Computed example of a mutant assay.
Amino acid sequence: MAGVKQARDGAVGILTLDEPASLNAMTPDLLGALALAVGEMTGTRPSARWCSRAPGGDFAQDRI
């Protein structure tokens, strides 16, 4: 899924935001991809835990 990588570690779902060109800004496309990814992660296991992250330390507030 563009912009969102998915992985699992046991019962933990890991969603990684991966849009470095936009510094992972919540664009409509990225927000839609994140919503779909959360739905996929929790669809079969509603009690599953998940965490989202943006690697590399490039966050928008660092560039202002």
Rank of each mutant, 00 (worst) to 15 (best):
A2H: 14
A2E: 07
G3L: 08
V4L: 11
V4Q: 15
V4W: 11
K5I: 11
K5P: 04
K5G: 11
K5D: 14
Q6D: 14
Q6A: 12
Q6M: 11
A7Q: 11
A7D: 13
R8G: 12
R8P: 05
R8D: 11
D9S: 14
D9C: 13
G10I: 02
G10Y: 04
A11L: 05
G13K: 04
G13N: 14
G13I: 04
G13R: 09
I14Q: 13
I14E: 12
I14P: 02
L15Q: 10
L15C: 11
T16G: 13
T16Y: 02
L17W: 08
L17M: 10
D18A: 07
D18S: 08
D18V: 00
D18E: 08
D18H: 12
E19S: 01
P20L: 02
P20T: 01
P20S: 03
A21F: 00
A21P: 01
S22V: 02
L23M: 08
L23K: 05
N24A: 01
A25P: 01
A25N: 06
A25C: 06
A25F: 03
A25Q: 10
A25Y: 03
M26H: 07
T27F: 01
P28Q: 06
P28M: 02
D29M: 09
D29A: 15
L30I: 00
L30V: 00
L30D: 00
L31D: 06
L31C: 11
L31Y: 05
L31G: 11
G32P: 00
G32K: 09
G32S: 14
G32D: 12
L34E: 07
L34T: 08
A35L: 06
L36M: 06
L36E: 13
L36V: 06
A37L: 01
A37V: 04
A37D: 06
A37G: 12
V38S: 02
G39I: 02
G39A: 09
E40R: 09
E40A: 12
E40K: 12
E40M: 05
M41P: 02
M41N: 03
M41L: 06
T42M: 04
T42C: 08
T42W: 00
T42R: 11
G43A: 08
T44I: 04
T44P: 00
T44F: 07
R45K: 05
R45M: 04
S47M: 08
S47D: 15
S47E: 10
R49D: 10
R49L: 14
C51L: 12
S52L: 07
S52N: 05
R53L: 15
A54L: 01
A54E: 15
A54C: 09
A54H: 13
P55F: 10
P55R: 12
P55M: 06
G56P: 06
G57V: 01
D58P: 15
D58F: 12
D58N: 13
F59N: 09
F59G: 12
A60L: 14
A60S: 15
A60T: 07
Q61L: 11
Q61K: 03
Q61T: 15
D62P: 02
D62V: 09
D62I: 04
R63L: 07
I64P: 09
